[in-house]
Simulated assay, not measured.
Amino acid sequence: MIKLKKLFTGAVIATSSLISMNAAVAADYPPQTINMVAPSGAGGGWDLTIRTVAKTLKDTGLVSSNMPVVNRPGGGGAVNLAYMQTQKGKGDLISVYSPPILLTNLTGLTQYSYQDTTPLARLITDYAAFVVPENSKYTSIKQVMDALKNDPKSVKIGGGSAAGSMDHIQFLLVAKAAGVENLRQIDYISFQDGSLVAQALGGHVDLISTGLGDVAGIVESGKLRALAQTADKRIGTGLIAEIPTVKEEGIDVTFENWRGLFGPKDMPAEAVQYWRDTLQKMVETPEWKAALKRNGWDNAYQDNEAFTTFLATTNEQYKSLIKDVFGR
Rank of each mutant, 00 (worst) to 15 (best):
K6I: 12
T9P: 02
A11D: 09
A11L: 14
V12D: 04
A14Y: 02
M21C: 15
N22D: 09
A24C: 13
D28R: 15
Y29N: 08
P30D: 12
Q32R: 12
T33R: 15
T49L: 15
R51P: 02
T52I: 07
V53T: 07
V53H: 08
A54C: 03
D59A: 10
N66H: 10
V70W: 05
G76P: 07
V79R: 14
A82S: 15
Y83G: 00
M84D: 02
T86D: 13
G89P: 14
D92W: 05
V96W: 09
V96C: 09
S98T: 08
P99S: 09
I101K: 08
N105K: 11
G108T: 07
L109A: 04
S113R: 03
Q115P: 01
Q115E: 15
T117H: 06
I124W: 02
D126M: 03
D126K: 02
D126S: 10
A129D: 01
A129Y: 00
V131A: 07
P133S: 15
P133V: 05
Y138Q: 04
T139A: 06
K149Y: 11
N150H: 10
K153I: 04
I157G: 12
G160L: 04
S161E: 14
A162L: 11
M166D: 15
D167Y: 14
F171N: 03
V174H: 12
A178D: 02
I186Y: 09
G194H: 06
Q199S: 13
A200G: 06
G203K: 09
L207R: 02
L207Y: 09
I208H: 05
S209C: 09
G213I: 02
R225Q: 10
L227P: 08
R234S: 02
I235H: 01
A241H: 11
A241C: 06
K247G: 00
E248V: 10
E249R: 07
E249L: 12
I251V: 09
F255N: 09
W258S: 02
R259C: 10
L261N: 05
K265L: 12
K265V: 10
Y274T: 06
Y274F: 13
K281F: 09
K281S: 01
V283I: 10
E287Q: 15
K293I: 06
R294P: 01
G296Q: 00
D303M: 07
A306D: 13
F310T: 11
N315L: 03
N315A: 06
E316K: 12
Q317L: 02
Q317C: 01
Y318M: 08
I322P: 08
